[in-house]
């Protein structure tokens, strides 16, 4: 009995972690900054590749993963300054820029680094409950997802940078007039988003095939989670991930992965139809 219950929880945790980790970076870049970042998957790929390089260079895995996140973040900050900055007033053009960027990055990686990379191998270690075997690493991913949610919340709610960032996103002119250094805030916020995307890649690198287009597997889930969450990502991402993870886990278990996938998409349609402002809009309305 307990084993079965835990098995359900494990499945849910697995899908939840995937949704949260893949959406976290996008929640900041798309949810807060309004940039339709089609290159989100490429930041994830960048994190995974950097992690793998660092690991093969001899770093222990957790350090290598930190490297992955940092590298993606730094690249994000540079790209923001060079490519993204002129487009805050034209968010739809950012879609083209980032799409172009994603083409250049995936193909560039293919040409420079080859069509695939030797993997890392998932850290071994598992545990048994009843007749089921579980991978410890998947539980670490779940914990990481919770930490990321907490980190985003604290960063943007409790720190000075976070308050400045939210003020800038709401009214850049006003924030600047009050002494906030707008460009720096934009760059750092974008960097945080890119680093979170890189972290997602870093965490999933040991469990996946490393190819230049690997980011594509994350992109639909990440956009869907962020949008269902609604305009206020600090409030919306977690309940959105919970709702979608429950739907998907149930359908996966009952009807297999195909209907899990289709069901997830139809659930998105249904949720938006019922809550046209997403979860955060609904929660805000209930609170007021």
């Amino acid at each position: 009995m307990f084993a079965d219950l835990f098995a359900y929880f494990y499945q849910f945790a697995d899908v939840f972690a995937f949704l949260v980790l893949s959406a976290a970076g996008l929640a900041v870049i798309f949810g807060m900054m309004g940039i339709i970042n089609m290159a989100h998957g490429e930041f994830i790929m960048c994190g995974a590749y950097a992690t793998t390089f660092a690991y093969h260079a001899g770093l222990p895995l957790p350090l290598a993963q930190a490297c992955g996140a940092i590298v993606a973040g730094v690249i994000g900050i540079i790209l923001e300054a060079v490519l993204i900055r002129p487009f805050y007033s034209r968010p739809l053009d950012s879609l083209l820029i980032t799409w172009g960027l994603s083409l250049v990055v995936t193909q560039g990686t293919l040409i420079v680094l080859g069509s695939s990379m030797p993997g890392i191998g998932t850290p071994s270690g598992g545990f048994h409950i009843g007749e089921y075997g579980f991978s410890t690493y998947r539980m670490i991913l779940f914990a990481a997802a919770l930490c990321v949610l907490g980190f985003i919340y604290l960063l943007f709610k409790r720190t000075r940078f976070g308050v400045h960032a939210r003020a800038t996103m709401q009214n850049a002119g006003m924030a600047q007039a009050l002494g906030v250094r707008r460009n720096r805030i934009y760059a750092l916020t974008f960097g945080v988003g890119a680093a979170l995307a890189g972290l997602c890649g870093a965490l999933y690198a040991p469990t996946m095939t490393l190819i230049p287009t690997m980011g594509a597997t994350f992109i639909v889930e990440s956009f869907v989670t962020v949008v269902v969450g609604g305009a206020n990502v600090l409030l919306g991402t977690a309940p959105a991930a919970v709702a979608l993870a429950i739907t998907r886990t149930a359908l996966n278990g009952l009807y297999g992965q195909v209907f899990g996938q289709i069901g997830l998409l139809l659930a998105v349609v249904l949720i938006i139809r019922v809550l046209p402002e997403g979860f955060s809009g609904w929660l805000a309305k209930r609170a007021s």
């Binding site: 490519l83 002129p86 487009f87 083209l96 172009g100 960027l101 083409l103 193909q107 040409i111």
Partner: peptide, 20 residues
């Protein structure tokens, strides 16, 4: 050949940057 996708990306980026 393989450079095609890169060139496409660059064309898009350059166009958007210089021709709003």
């Amino acid at each position: 050949e393989q450079a095609a996708l890169i060139l496409m990306g660059v064309i898009l980026i350059v166009t958007v940057m210089f021709v709003p």
